[in-house]
């Protein structure tokens, strides 16, 4: 039993971290009143941007001559740039142009999934024309900078750190309070002199950059290769986690590891391989139950931000 847990828990963390990044980013976003359903697409773009960066760097200098700093920084920075652009696009459409958030978010997911898988497929072909005949992207040189193989790697600590920071930020800082005010009632926040547009932009863009790192983690640590990654499933689970934890990033640390564990439990237990799909079903069902209970109990602190999903237009009364 003990041996099983020692082997199982790190894998659960490895599988849970993309969810933690995604849910932390989405919580920050939702606290500003933006329901960003583009998270799966943003995670995809973060992943492909990071992978492309790593791939190009590795191709240009050769796996043997890679510098540890550059090998780490290039994927992370390209991932952040990619997800930044996605967040900016979402904000421009929903905040500046006041478009419907559901439709924009879904378009973003379709866009990101399409772009990432297309580029992933193209890069695979480019890689093939080189000496390697791998059917997946060769980023093996960069992988060692993220994880020694099976351990969760430093990026996992970053993820936990970000979750704690976001949690503290929302709860204890003045800016966090003002951000929550924007999400609850933008008109009141506006009247109190808070710049609603700026808060929405910043929260959503930073949120999507955090989520983008989840995509990078998925490739660099969880799957360690690019072959038809199922990042969209992680993205939707991350949105489920937001509800499951009732908008608390600190809870999400444990919940995401739990969900991550459930995703692999079926493959880890010998006697339960046929239960694989049922274990994978559990996160969605418990999220539904939490969603129902939260709405049923009507406890104020567990409710979604009140203006979630609604565009704010100052002159509309």
């Amino acid at each position: 039993m003990w041996e099983f847990l020692v082997a199982f828990i790190p894998r659960a963390i490895v599988n849970g971290m993309p969810l933690l990044f995604g849910s932390t980013g989405e919580i920050l976003t939702e606290k500003s009143g933006n329901l960003n359903l583009g998270i799966p697409g943003i995670m995809f773009v973060g992943a492909i941007a990071g992978t492309t960066g790593a791939f190009l760097y590795e191709q240009s200098v050769g796996a043997a001559n890679m510098n540890a700093w550059l090998g780490t920084l290039i994927p992370v920075l390209s991932c952040l740039v990619g997800s930044f652009l996605m967040g900016l696009l979402y904000c421009f459409l929903t905040v500046t142009l006041r478009a419907n958030q559901n439709v924009t978010g879904l378009s973003l997911t379709i866009f990101g999934t399409g772009l990432a898988n297309f580029l992933g497929g193209t890069l695979i072909k480019l890689a093939k024309t080189d000496a390697s005949s791998a059917s997946s992207l060769t980023i093996s040189g960069s992988l060692k900078y993220f994880s020694a193989g099976t351990d969760p790697g430093w990026l996992a600590y970053v993820g936990i750190g970000i979750a704690i920071l976001v949690s503290l930020f929302l709860r204890y800082t003045r800016t966090g309070l003002q951000l929550r005010a924007v999400g609850e009632n933008p008109a009141t926040a506006d009247a109190a002199g808070i710049n609603v547009t700026r808060y929405k932009y910043l929260a959503t863009i930073i949120g999507s950059m955090i989520a983008g790192l989840g995509g990078l983690y998925y490739i660099m640590v969880s799957s360690q290769t690019w072959s038809e990654p199922k990042i969209d499933a992680s993205g939707w689970l991350a949105i489920a986690l937001v509800i499951f934890t009732t908008w608390r990033p600190s809870l999400s640390i444990f919940a995401s590891i739990g969900f991550g564990g459930l995703l692999i439990l079926g493959t880890r237990l010998d006697f339960a391989t046929e239960m694989k799909e049922l274990f994978e079903l559990v996160p969605y069902v418990v999220t539904l139950i939490v969603l129902i209970i939260v709405s049923l109990r009507k406890k104020r602190e567990n409710q979604p931000p009140q203006s979630l999903g609604l565009a704010y237009f100052r002159e509309e009364r």
């Binding site: 696009l89 459409l93 378009s107 379709i110 866009f111 399409g114 497929g121 193209t122 024309t129």
Partner: peptide, 29 residues
């Protein structure tokens, strides 16, 4: 050579069209 047009590519273009439509609703409203 090297590039395949596929459903992913089409989805990407489709989303671009959607972004334009989403954006143009602003001009309408």
């Amino acid at each position: 050579d090297g590039v395949s047009l596929d459903k992913n590519f089409a989805n990407m273009l489709m989303a671009i069209i959607l972004f334009f439509i989403i954006g143009c609703e602003f001009i309408i409203n």
